[in-house]
Amino acid sequence: MSIPAQLPAWITRIGVFDLETTGVDVTADRIVTAHVGVLDRHGREIAARDWLADPGIPIPDGATAVHGVTTEHARAQGRPAGEVVQEVSKALRALLAQGMPIVAYNASYDFSLLANEAERHGVPALVDPQPIIDPFVIDKAYDRYRCGKRTLSVVAEHYAVPLDGAHEASADAVAAGRVALALARSFAFPGTASELHTQQIAWARAQAASLTDYFITVGRLDPLETIDGGWPVRSVDAP
């Protein structure tokens, strides 16, 4: 671990973003809940907004078991999906317009699914949001050989970040932001969030290539298949 001589300037205020969804397919699955907030340098949330959407399709039991939202509840209490997608995108754009980095854990999932939802509902998509801070990618790059899983709950515990209410969009978003702050205090990051964003593009691509090779070796992928290493947005191809 290389202790930074100076903390990066972006640590003073960061956006945080998380989605809970109907599944893990970024092209076909839909938003159920969303959270966008702002943390100060101490990890305190100083602004926040939550959304509950009616995704327009049934929420599978497996997804409900993760985030707790049933189809019936989403239909009764959720807002139209198109409105939620538009408002979440607008909130993220507003933070980025201020030059504020946005933290999202495994960002290529959340931003890719949001981009596909935007295409689906005729909302201008965030096709190249930046700067994005992704603790999932950064942790794997700076502490490559640490054993164990890299889920948010495991990584949060490793960096002594509390995570109460895992798989609630608000709890996950805030925990990811606090992990990002912990990482910035643990490792020597580049001077600007934009430089770190650029580095993450290359890291994510290399990590996807390495995982592709591993999955081919263990028989989870065919030799001609690859894992999309696009970051922070994979290819957008809404049905």
Rank of each mutant, 00 (worst) to 15 (best):
L113Y: 07
L113D: 06
L114Y: 03
L114G: 02
N116A: 06
N116H: 08
N116W: 04
E119L: 11
E119G: 10
R120L: 11
H121K: 05
G122Y: 06
V123K: 12
V123H: 05
L126W: 10
V127I: 10
V127H: 11
P129A: 07
P129R: 03
P131L: 00
P131N: 08
I133Y: 05
I133H: 14
I133W: 08
D134K: 01
D134Q: 11
I138S: 12
D139I: 00
A141E: 02
D143V: 06
R144C: 01
R144A: 15
R146C: 06
C147N: 00
K149D: 15
R150D: 04
T151I: 00
L152Q: 09
S153F: 01
V154N: 05
V154M: 13
V155A: 10
E157G: 14
H158E: 10
A160D: 15
D164L: 14
G165C: 02
A166E: 12
A166C: 05
A171Q: 07
A171C: 09
A176N: 10
R178C: 06
L183A: 05
R185N: 09
R185M: 13
R185H: 10
A188E: 13
T192A: 12
E195R: 01
L196M: 05
L196I: 01
Q199I: 01
I201S: 04
A202N: 00
A202M: 02
A202T: 12
W203I: 05
A204S: 14
A206Q: 15
A208G: 05
A208S: 13
Y214Q: 09
F215W: 13
F215C: 10
V218N: 07
G219Q: 10
D222S: 15
D222Q: 13
P223H: 14
P223N: 13
E225K: 00
E225I: 00
T226Q: 14
